[in-house]
Design a protein around this nucleic acid. Sequence first.
DNA 1: TATTAGTTAATAATAATTATTAATTAAAAA
DNA 2: TTTTTAATTAATAATTATTATTAACTAATA
Lengths: 143, 143
Amino acid sequence: MVNIQEQIELFIKKCRVKNLNVTPQRLTIYRALLSDGSHPNPDAIHKKIIQEHPTISFSTVYKTLEAFERTGIISLVNNLHDTMRYDPITKQHHHIICVKCKKIIDVFDEELDFIKIPQSVTDGNRLLGFKVHFNVICSNCRE
Amino acid sequence: MVNIQEQIELFIKKCRVKNLNVTPQRLTIYRALLSDGSHPNPDAIHKKIIQEHPTISFSTVYKTLEAFERTGIISLVNNLHDTMRYDPITKQHHHIICVKCKKIIDVFDEELDFIKIPQSVTDGNRLLGFKVHFNVICSNCRE
DNA sequence: TATTAGTTAATAATAATTATTAATTAAAAA
DNA sequence: TTTTTAATTAATAATTATTATTAACTAATA
C-alpha cells in the first residue's frame, strides 16, 4: 500500500523542515514503526530495535515518538490512551472526541450505521462492530 | 436521547441476568456514568460519587466498571487505552482493531473518506478529521 | 578548535491500573 | 431466625506505562 523507500525519504524531508536531526536512532525508530503494519507500542518497538541497536534506551524511544508526534511526522492512534473511558449506552452509535480535553460525546445517526464495509475488514476477521470517531476541538477548548 | 429511568431499569434487569447483585455502590456508579454524557474516567466518577457516598473506594469503582464491562452491561470506549500506539502514515485512512491482541491494521478506502458528517459533529466544534474503527477478532485470535 | 545546542541513555518520579487481603454485607440453607 | 456460604467492598500493596530529570555524548556552528 505504501512504498517504504518513498516514506523514508519523505520522513527525512519532514525532519529537516521541523528542525529535527536525522540521527541513526530516529531513523531506526521510524523504520521499525513503518515496517510493522500492526502499529506496535513503544515497548514492542524497543524490543524490535534492540537487536540492531543494542544501546538504545527506552526513554529515547518514548521521547522520539513524542517528538515525531508533536511535529506531525507521525500520529498517535489512540489519543484516549491515558485513562479508561466507559460507555453506558450499548446500542450502535458514534463518538465525537475533543483532542484537547478528551471529552467524548455520543452521536446517534442512522446513516452512519450503514456504511459500506470494505472487503479487507471481513477478510479472515470476525467483525464485531464499528464506530466512527470524529476528532474535534470543542467549543470550550478553543480559548 | 436516552431515557434515564428506562436505562436504570434496563441496567437492573441486566444485572439480574448476569448474576450481579444490584448494590447501592453499583447503582451509584452506573448512574454517575449515565448522567455524565462526556464518558468520565474512573477518577472523575469517583470524585463525583464521593459526595453522596463518602466511603466508596477507588478500587470499588475500578472493579465495578470492570465487572460491568466484562458482562456487557457497559462498554469500554477506548480498548486501546493500555499503551500508546503510533501511526507513521498521516494521510486519511481507517483502522481494523483486534479486540483481543490489539493489533491495528490500516484500511485505505476512498468510500469511507466521504461519509456524511452529522450536524451535531460540527455544531460548535472544529472538526479535525474522522476515522472509522472496525472492531474485530482477527484470524490469529480465534483459536 | 571552541562553543553551543540538540540528542541520547540512565535513572528517578509519577500516575493509572491491577492484585491482594480482610472486613463487611447479602443470599441461601438449615 | 440463625447459620453458613458466597459476593462485595474498602484498604492497601504491587505493578506497569509514562514522564521528568540529569549527565554524558554528539553534531552543528562560529
